[in-house]
Amino acid sequence: MLRYLVRRTLFMILVLWIVSVLTFVIFFKLPVRDPAQQIAGKGATAEVIANVRHQLGLDQPLLEQYRRFAKGLIPLPGFWLNEQVYYNWTNRVAVWEEMRRDFPYTAVLTFGAAVLWLAIGIPLGIISAIRRGSVWDRAGMVFALIGVSAPTFWLGFLFLWVFHYGLEMFPGSGIPPQESLWGSVLQGRFFLPWLTLAITSAAFYTRMVRGNLLETMSEDYIRTARAKGLSERAVTYRHGLRAALTPVVTMFGLDVGILLGGAVITETVFNIPGIGSYAIRSIFQFNFPGTMGVTVFAAFFIVVANLVVDVLYAYLDPRVRYE
């Protein structure tokens, strides 16, 4: 297992490195415009632009520029997203500071939504599978179909429309500047974003749990469990669910990992100042260090999520444990 983890970690570093190179190349080799000129402003003289170029290090050879950025990816203090290179080109704030500031919002959004979608998706999937063909099942599947096919931004606006403007049950989008994160949570500002993010996933999980459980329940070992004389409840929950939920763990880990890197659409619709909003802003403002930071940050979470899922999976499924 340890050997495996070491290997995965090394692999993860490789992935992060590749991601960083790709981001870098995309940004610098396919320039839509010159960042220095953009930052210097429209009326800037040649000297000013040259100066900006120098400040940003854009006058150095490409390899040297990459080296500067790559150094910031080394996860050691003093290197990791170091301020000398990794600062927001548009407002000169250190990227790590901005991401550290924004991440708690993304984390609260992600984990809250995750709890919600598990709480909706798994029971609904189980009921649909156990009472296959019943009203419950059909209702569950209709929900799943709607949830899976509804675009996130549409759902977000719909919820705002209904629950905020219509019923006035929940606060609308945006976080008042003087409110603390927990204050916002208590105010219920996260509820609609959670719901929005959760519905799509919940629908997906409903389908997945239902499908997995139905498939599992037709496995030979379920027949064995029944033949032992176990109660139907024990058969379903101890034998069926255990196997049916294992792939859900994988899915869940990856989903959470991806979302921790920024729930772009939901954050935008509800104006939650998380990593996703930051990513969008960085891209539109041509803030390369921010873009790079978020990309690597997101990639980091996805890779870590993969690692966690692998470990968890090995724990849950003994067949892959000792490989």
Partner: peptide, 19 residues
């Protein structure tokens, strides 16, 4: 079932719970 009458199946590979 299981106590008085018990049963074994064709494929022992899939008939035991893998977890």
């Amino acid at each position: 079932r299981g106590r008085r009458i018990s049963m074994i199946f064709q494929d022992p590979m899939t008939s035991l719970h893998p977890f």
